[in-house]
């Protein structure tokens, strides 16, 4: 390991969090604007989330009297840090920064941490609404983990080789190229399951039961204000970015540089911009449109929905992939 490499790594590790926060907030802005247009409204300007964060940072940070103070104050930071951490393991148009040091399974684990932080923060804030919210968040988490892990396992199972869990490997071997008819149908099912898991993971309608505004007054967030709320708010944006990147990395890892005949630095830049575009499109389909089109579920329907319907969908996808490996029905 030479000095130049370490310098590059350190520089990138400093730059990435800033970019992640910036882009996460931008994604939130695009989402809000788009949903507003779908609802025939004008909507806020795209820079609105940035203004929100600036405003929140200038507000007083209130800690409830009966809260467990250190957990209450630490959790927003943990939530934001862990959301950013996911990005270090996901290829963002270029190989992940920490390639070779962690794989999909690790990403799965890190993805749980933001939710856990929210749960801990909710319990620590000692409000009955937050307690209900935290319980709901826990149940939601348990529900969507099953289909999510089935999807991840299926992908890893399908790819050959010993490092099939490595995201770098997955994204350099696009799945769509190697599957046959059955596998294609299976992949579609897996992609759909992952898209339905997204609103649950990101706590958006219809699976925002943990933060249901009209039911339990933002649930886990009810006591948070000022700086702490701003951190959660930014973490939410980063989480959207991270999860959309995960979908892009697994299902749409194509890069644009070969098409444009670019090499070197230009290729990297073009690939990165193309990647950003893909993330935005994935977000629109998995967050914005779903969020605008349906009503919120009850927590019981969330559990049955994820465990029965979505898990079944993912399992059928897995089954189709297995058949595909066995029978090799080709397109011709």
């Amino acid at each position: 390991m030479n000095g130049e490499f370490i310098l590059k790594l350190v520089l990138e590790c400093i730059l990435l969090p800033f970019f992640a926060i910036f882009f996460g907030l931008l994604l939130k802005g695009i989402d809000r604007k788009l949903v507003a247009r779908m609802q025939a409204r004008v909507g806020p300007p795209i820079r609105q989330p940035f203004l929100d964060v600036i405003k929140l940072f200038s507000k007083e940070n209130i800690v409830p009297e009966h809260a467990v103070k250190w957990i209450y104050n630490a959790m927003p930071l943990v939530c934001l840090a862990s959301s950013i951490m996911v990005l270090f393991y996901i290829p963002l148009g270029f190989p992940p920064l920490l390639a070779g040091h962690g794989d999909l399974v690790l990403v799965l684990y890190i993805l749980i941490i933001p939710s856990l932080a929210m749960i801990a923060g909710g319990f620590a804030s000692s409000s009955p609404f937050a307690t209900v919210g935290a319980q709901r968040e826990m149940v939601t988490m348990i529900s969507y983990e099953l289909p999510l892990s089935i999807v991840i396992m299926s992908i890893a199972f399908y790819l050959p080789g010993s490092n099939s869990f490595s995201l770098d490997f997955i994204s350099s071997h696009p799945l769509w190229n190697s599957v046959g008819v059955l596998g294609f149908a299976g992949l579609i099912l897996l992609l759909m399951s992952l898209i339905i898991v997204t609103p649950g993971e990101l706590a958006k309608v219809p699976f925002d039961v943990a933060e249901a505004e009209t039911e339990i007054a933002e649930g886990v967030m009810v006591e948070y204000s000022g700086r702490n709320l701003a951190l959660f708010y930014m973490a939410d944006g980063v989480k959207i970015f991270a999860f959309a990147s995960l979908i892009v990395a697994i299902f749409f890892p194509y890069s644009i540089s070969p098409l444009l005949n670019l090499t070197g630095l230009y290729a990297d830049i073009a690939n990165f911009l193309f990647f950003i575009l893909k993330v935005v499109i994935v977000m629109i389909f998995s967050v914005s449109i779903i969020r605008a089109a349906v009503a919120r579920y009850r927590i019981t329907s969330v559990v049955t929905g994820y465990w029965v319907t979505v898990a079944m969908m993912a399992l059928i996808g897995l089954l189709l992939l297995m058949w595909d490996m066995h029978y090799h029905v080709r397109w011709s």
Binding site: L34, A36, R37, M38, Q39, A40, R41, V42, G43, P44, P45, I289, A292, A293, V294
Partner: peptide, 26 residues
């Protein structure tokens, strides 16, 4: 199952219904 989808897409490409008085953004 979700009749709102169609309406959403139609509305997305339509001019917003709101009259932006006095200015588009506050």
């Amino acid at each position: 199952m979700f009749p709102m989808f169609k309406q959403l897409i139609v509305q997305m490409f339509r001019k917003p219904f709101t009259n932006p008085f006095p200015a588009k953004y506050a």
